[in-house]
Write a protein that binds this DNA or RNA. Sequence first.
DNA 1: TTATATATTTGCAATGATTACAAAAATGAA
DNA 2: TTCATTTTTGTAATCATTGCAAATATATAA
Lengths: 139, 139
Amino acid sequence: MATRAELREELIKAGIRPSVQRLAIFEYVRQSCQHPTAEVVYEALCDELGSLSLTTVYNTLKLFVDAGLISMLTIDDTFRCFDGNRCCHAHFRCNNCGKIVDLQMKEDFISLVEGLDGYKITDAQLYLKGLCPACKNKK
Amino acid sequence: MATRAELREELIKAGIRPSVQRLAIFEYVRQSCQHPTAEVVYEALCDELGSLSLTTVYNTLKLFVDAGLISMLTIDDTFRCFDGNRCCHAHFRCNNCGKIVDLQMKEDFISLVEGLDGYKITDAQLYLKGLCPACKNKK
DNA sequence: TTATATATTTGCAATGATTACAAAAATGAA
DNA sequence: TTCATTTTTGTAATCATTGCAAATATATAA
């Protein structure tokens, strides 16, 4: 769990000026295990920051994604969500309850992909979908 | 390359009545290596079928995805595209030119995921993003 | 400090892919 | 044929996301 000062340093190192809004958004996404959407980030930080614009949240999240500081997940095709967990992991989305969970990997999945000579890879996501144990038992 | 009769049988086996529209859409997505969007499928088949509704294309593609006959890709976060290739493979999307290409796998990537006991997996997608060789050289 | 340029935030309007809906057409059963 | 069911269609609505221009904050220079 990084401190606020460490997160600030990380932004600066990435060439991003740590404004109040940016630092709050960065901290929120990095600490969350919930894969929040832009809307969720906005709702969560509105009070804390006094005021905040949804546009700022969208712009800032995009800034972080482009800088490689967080990832954007498109596992749900109706909205994007964001992930501050920097360890290599896969995601599972339950088709019934919609929950998105992290799954550990035995090894980095990029090593299994063939024919990547000449490519520059900046992002990799492994998405699994189906039924989570709870929903599977209900049916 | 499956014949039209084989594709028809596959629909019936999946419990889907092979209407003219459905068979044409199924054939198009299965034969294409281009990961078409609903709009692309619609444009391609409008003439062939005389008339066609974009709503039908959307509904039909969803029907096929739910039946496990084709996959939906969300590698590009601004639109969905569809993939009729049933072999296990990964996808790469170039951040510069937008091209989506298939990549072979040394082995099925699901085997690398831990903690799947109790889950029912119905879909798995591995997405890589970055620069393709051509775009990488240009920069 | 003050003035000026630059970067950031904000609110609202616009965008566009996708879906809801209800009518029309096609198909199957009796 | 008649009736019920399934499928298709066109249009309107939805809603997550973006464009844009004004307002605000921050950094730099003098």
